[in-house]
Design a protein around this nucleic acid. Structure first.
Lengths: 341, 341
DNA sequence: TTGTAGGCGTTATCAA
DNA sequence: TTGATAACGCCTACAA
């Protein structure tokens, strides 16, 4: 039995007779033999790994996305490297450089790198970008713009005349998209808009800008994501303002939205699916089945829960011991609020 | 110039003359040459990678831990594989098997595997266990028991006579520790205790057991972790009960605690540090600097925030528009609710 | 359907 | 201080 035969038994069983394959696999199992991944990688040039690089794994959006990606990769027999850039472009750059040698491709999520840097890295290995639109590179964009526009319309419909957009990272594509959509819609509807900058999309940053929000005299805010929205809610509460009685709030991602109290009106991004689809796209690229600049756009939806209401409205009286989980009915709150006016 | 020299210029520069090293490195940079990681791994038997396997990366506790671990590994020049077992022992087993070939060691967090399985895997590669105490294997235990005991004392001191422990995964070491501590302390103090089982440490599971909690007639609960505590809080709110006015709640981990409203009384676990320390321990093991069964115990602290109060207590009144960061004040919501009753 | 042999890029051993 | 050369374990033409 030559080693070539053994090799084929694992890699190309169809080139061997049934018996031989069975024999080899049987003996292998009994001996506890497993093909050496490293040697195979050296010989074939394929690593059997991919890498996922994100700005902050602690953010539920990235965590969920990563969960989807990792599961999909595992199903396809690939292992997944994790890179957390901590929102720092140079750490991101370093991760891409060091990981390149061991992976067949990258999923780069919400990159804070310059377009040139990304293109430079993409010369070495295939990339799939999430929420970043670099010419000629395969990407998957979570299309939150329309939902943010819809959120502005929703708030305008409730009677708000003056809104704030609480911005995320300046280098984030998503942030630009969301701000642009909010701005355009506000202008179209003749609604006032202020933009509030923050250091980082964190709970603390959201909490810290509550004062600014109040000072700006707006009655509602659209936050860059759920984490910030949650922080804002806490910051407002600390200043004696209740949501949505005194202030309306919209978040984004849907990961935290149902876990806050009251449940957050939020743009649902289907992040788990984004993870699996990005990996699927990467595999298509790897086997040459996808155009080199394939682009996917994932739709999102505005889910109206309970942090948006007419400005200055009182909270509806609500019977105790409800059957729970009523937060998905947009009318409930709206109607109730109207009743108490 | 032989390839051996080039190799040494990168790996053992001290064996070469200053000039040679400089020359090689210079040319390498100009040519864009980087040593091939895979070939080096094959030749040396060292992969330069570690793997981190967790039950659910979406849980903030694991996310934070992983963040710490990944950062530490990166600082030491190691790349990190991520494995999410989705709480399923067989997935965990499969991950360990497939990853073994490419890593120098594992960090296994809150394993749901049997002791035999773990020992079997540990034969192939060095392991550091977090929150799992398997004889003779290096481990790092986050010592929440004493803090849970203290939490029971705290609740007893507030006047609670009947508590619930909302359990986490049956296979979790932490769950056993916490339950044991709660049970022993409750018995010692003559306090009633019921144990409530759940499917999985998720927000939904916490939310779902609110009814059971009410039916049990207890006035306070200690949850397995913050995520569940948050779910319980939502479940109670959905049934018209306010925390801590009508019910007191204690969580664990500290990751979510400050982001809830009211902020959660919780056992702080320093999970980020746990991640870095586990990786540090693994590296000690790898270079033979640590006893093969080294064990670390990390202390925790009970942080009393605003979800614990005397049973049946009313909330104090509070002036609006406080100077911020006062979201630690649970009274607001309680008062409003009381008013509408 | 199976065996033979060269090569993947490094490191380690032994000489020089 | 450097060079030559044999592993490392597997894959893949090419041959049989």
């Amino acid at each position: 039995m030559s080693r070539a035969t053994v090799s084929r038994a694992f890699g190309q069983p169809h080139l061997l007779s049934r018996d031989t394959v069975e024999l080899v696999l049987g003996v292998a199992r009994r001996l506890g033999y497993v093909p050496n991944h490293t040697a195979r990688a050296l010989s074939t040039g394929r690593a059997g790994n991919i890498a996922l690089v994100v700005p902050d794994i602690t953010n539920s959006f990235f965590a969920a996305l990563m969960r989807g990606a990792q599961a999909k990769a595992r199903d396809e027999g690939y292992a997944t490297f994790l890179g957390d850039s901590d929102e720092m472009p140079d750490v991101e750059d370093m991760l891409l450089t060091k990981l390149a040698a061991q992976v067949d491709g990258f999923i780069l999520v919400s990159s804070r790198l310059s377009e040139e840097s990304i293109l430079e890295h993409a010369k070495r290995r295939p990339f799939v970008l999430i929420n970043r639109d670099v010419a000629q590179l395969p990407h998957l964009l979570i299309d939150t713009g329309p939902s943010y526009a819809q959120a502005v319309e929703h708030l305008a419909g409730l009677g708000h005349r003056s809104l704030a957009y609480v911005a995320g990272p300046t280098l984030s594509w998503s942030n630009r998209e969301r701000h642009a959509a909010v701005e355009a819609t506000a202008r179209r509807l003749g609604i006032g808009l202020v933009r509030i900058e923050t250091s980082r999309p964190s709970f603390e940053a959201g909490q810290a800008c509550a004062g600014e929000l109040i000072a700006a005299g707006v009655t509602a805010a659209l936050a860059f994501d759920d984490v910030m929205a949650q922080g804002i809610m806490a910051g407002l509460a600390g200043r004696g303002l209740a949501v949505p009685r005194d202030f309306s709030l919209v978040g984004c991602d849907g990961v935290l939205a149902t876990t806050t109290y009251p449940p957050l009106t939020s743009v649902e991004t289907h992040c788990f699916a984004a993870g699996t689809q990005a990996v699927a796209l990467l595999f298509e690229v790897l086997r040459g089945a996808a155009p080199p600049h394939a682009g996917l756009r994932l739709p999102t939806e505005l889910i109206i829960r309970q942090t948006t209401a007419p400005p200055g409205a009182s909270r509806p009286v609500e019977p105790p011991l409800l059957p729970s989980r009523q937060h998905d009915d947009p009318h409930h709150r709206g109607r109730a609020a109207a009743t108490t006016e």
